[in-house]
Each structure stands twice: as C-alpha cells, then as structure tokens.
Amino acid sequence: MSGYHSWVKFYLDEKNQRVNYLGYKYDLKGEDGSQNPNVVTLQMINNVINMQGKVIAQLFKFKGGFFVGPSPECEMAMATVAYYESVHGKIIDKRRISINSATYDLVLYRSTNPNGSRGDFIRSFFPIFLGMDDGEIPNTDEPVVVPIDEVTKNNGVVIIVASQPNPEGNDEGYEWVELQNTTNEAIDLSGWKLQDKLNRPEEINGTLQPQEVKRFTISRANPNSMQLGNSSGIISLLNSAGQEVAMVSYSRASSGEVIRFGS
C-alpha cells in the first residue's frame, strides 16, 4: 500500500521527528476546531529524494487523511471489502458510507495493469471526511510537484551564507552553518532553529548584530538531531514562530569543502 494514510505511520514519524507538524487549522467547512475526533484531514509537503539521496523537488498534496485509532487489521478489513466491491463493479474508486453519524467517502485505488485496466492489488485506501451530515465532497486536488529551485529562498532578514557538510575526519561536532543578519538591527535568535532535509532540528540562540556573520556548529546531539548529508541536502532556517526564513540546497560535498550560497 502506498500513500500517507495510516495514523500509526504518522504517529511513529512524528515521534521520531520525520514529520514536521506545521500548524492546526481544520477548515473543510471554513471553521476552526475539530468536528470529528475519529479522522484526520491534512495537507502535506514532502521533499522528493532521488536514488543518490539528492533532493530534486518538493511535493505538495492539497488534502488527504486517515482514520485515528483503528487497528491495522481493521483498516485492512475495510479495504478488503471495498476491494471486492470494486472487483465486482459495485464501486469504482469511492464508496460513500456512514460511521457513527459521520459521512465519508472511502477512496480505494487499485494497481494498474499495462493495458490500463485495474489490477489485483490495493495501491491506496483512505477516508475523505464529508461532515457529520451529508455534504459536498471537499476539493481534493492531485499532488503538485514543484522543482526544488522554485521553493528555496535565501533573501530574507537572515540568510544562509555558507556551510561545511562534510568536514575532514569525524563529522560529529565539526559540521557548521554560517548565518548573516542582512538588516541594520540586531536580531534575537531565541527559539530559532536550523533543519536538515528530514526536518531534524538544531536549536540555535544568541544575537546576530547588524550585518554580522556568525557560525553555528551542528551538534548531532542524538539520532533525531540535525545532520548534514555528504551527498546532498537541504538546510532550512526557522524563526521562533516556526516560519521559514531561509532554505538552501546543495549537491555532493567533498571532504573539507565549504559550500557558499547566494542570496
């Protein structure tokens, strides 16, 4: 099965900091606040990495979701029923159901054969929450792939000027990133952080004086801390509100090489 449609997968990824939770706003009907505790509807931004480990694009999925709480066996059983309904022509890709007074479309995508017909395997299975009463199907656009060059930015109040992802010898404690304050006012970095391409954080602090360039060591304090890859990577800078201030990408870094980034 493919697709980010399991609460267990989301829980484990968030626990291990492979998911960066960007905020909470439930607005299928333009309202804040949870309407149904049994399902999550979410948007996702995912870094697309090729076989060499290089980030080549960013994928944005407008809206998806998953049930919260059921066992994997329960979800597989629901998908199996929907699969056999699809095999016998009772449904195509969606099955309208009601569970505990909530209305859903259960979406089932089967594999595709070379001739274009539907195959014998379940490719993806997930719910679309339509509301506590019958309602219109919300907008669920296909994922949009954006080339990485179009989402990197390095022209704000603080920019990333240089980095050494692959120091000679031991990497631990010797990787670093240099930041520059481009303004004429001091900037307090309390609550700011750097992140790698897997959104693993490195907390930073201190003050950047006007036009100052300062170097920050990547500590690799634990496996979930920021680590700069040697083959390629992304470096992001977030302020205390969690807003992205700068993001740069790089390809393979030679041993001891200092990579400099333009604004």
Results as ranks from 00 to 15, higher is better:
residue 70 P to L: 06
residue 82 A to P: 06
residue 70 P to K: 12
residue 256 G to Y: 14
residue 175 E to D: 09
residue 152 T to A: 08
residue 114 P to Y: 14
residue 114 P to C: 09
residue 104 Y to M: 04
residue 219 S to D: 13
residue 199 N to S: 06
residue 193 K to I: 07
residue 105 D to R: 01
residue 67 F to Q: 02
residue 243 Q to P: 00
residue 136 E to Y: 12
residue 195 Q to N: 07
residue 200 R to P: 09
residue 220 R to I: 04
residue 71 S to A: 10
residue 149 D to F: 15
residue 204 I to Q: 13
residue 4 Y to I: 02
residue 101 S to W: 13
residue 227 Q to Y: 11
residue 215 R to V: 04
residue 181 N to V: 01
residue 248 V to F: 02
residue 189 L to E: 06
residue 142 E to W: 07
residue 83 Y to Q: 11
residue 139 N to A: 11
residue 155 N to Q: 15
residue 143 P to M: 10
residue 191 G to Q: 07
residue 164 Q to S: 12
residue 54 K to S: 13
residue 139 N to D: 12
residue 31 E to G: 08
residue 119 G to A: 00
residue 90 K to L: 08
residue 103 T to F: 15
residue 116 G to R: 06
residue 3 G to D: 02
residue 239 N to G: 03
residue 4 Y to A: 03
residue 80 T to I: 04
residue 42 L to K: 12
residue 142 E to F: 12
residue 134 D to Q: 03
residue 91 I to M: 05
residue 115 N to Y: 08
residue 134 D to K: 01
residue 232 S to G: 15
residue 242 G to C: 08
residue 173 G to N: 07
residue 134 D to H: 02
residue 105 D to C: 01
residue 10 F to R: 09
residue 5 H to M: 11
residue 190 S to K: 12
residue 18 R to K: 13
residue 12 L to E: 15
residue 160 I to R: 02
residue 7 W to E: 09
residue 201 P to Q: 01
